[in-house]
């Protein structure tokens, strides 16, 4: 089985990082995986998205064109990708930023005010992890134990203090009804 995921938003929202955590989960879980970023020349404020493939078989094209799962963290990303989600797939939206509601009936659309939730929990900037946590809970792709190990790989030792807050945000997302 292959799960194809697109994560998209503004540069600076941690889109590529969230994808990286997902990719490392695959590595730890013994899956085939690929992570492919796509971004403009800007550092912040521009659009950023990444394709992640998690599979039991070797991965062909790493560029996802029809995802099983979309995480959209801003309006332009939502518009760009929502129609590409495969029927039966999931679209997760950060409703603190994305104003639209999804009217597609053939996919599961979940709106979560992730940015506001992160701020309220004292985890500024961790909206990406809240959405990732929710996605993991919905898809049952990886367990929290796998994410814990992946997070240690993704965050360099000198920033180790950030591991706990990122994991906390994942947990908030996972427990979200």
């Amino acid at each position: 089985m292959t799960t194809e995921i697109i994560l998209a938003g503004f540069g600076g929202q941690g889109i590529l990082f969230a994808g990286k955590v997902l990719a490392y989960c695959g590595l730890i879980d013994g899956k085939e995986l690929s992570w492919l970023p796509s971004y403009g020349p800007e550092m912040r404020g521009g659009t950023a998205n990444c394709s992640v493939c998690i599979s039991d078989e070797p991965i062909g094209s790493p560029l996802v064109t029809a995802p099983n799962c979309l995480i959209a963290m801003n309006g332009p990303s939502y518009h760009k990708f929502v129609d590409t989600v495969k029927p039966g797939g999931i679209a997760l939206l950060d409703s603190s930023i994305v104003e639209e509601t999804c009217d597609r009936k053939d996919i599961t659309a979940i709106s979560l005010p992730a940015t506001n939730m992160a701020t309220k929990a004292g985890l500024n900037g961790a909206a990406n992890m809240i959405l990732l946590g929710k996605m993991l809970a919905e898809t049952k792709l990886f367990s929290f134990a796998v994410v814990e190990k992946a997070m240690e790989k993704c965050i360099p030792p000198k920033r180790a203090h950030l591991i706990a807050s990122n994991l906390k945000a994942i947990q908030i997302g996972m427990e979200q009804k």
């Binding site: 990286k20 590595l27 085939e32 995986l33 690929s34 992570w35 492919l36 970023p37 991965i59 790493p62």
Partner: peptide, 9 residues
């Protein structure tokens, strides 16, 4: 650029 930018094990 695709091979250079992508991550794989």
């Amino acid at each position: 650029g695709l091979l250079g930018q992508m991550m794989e094990p």
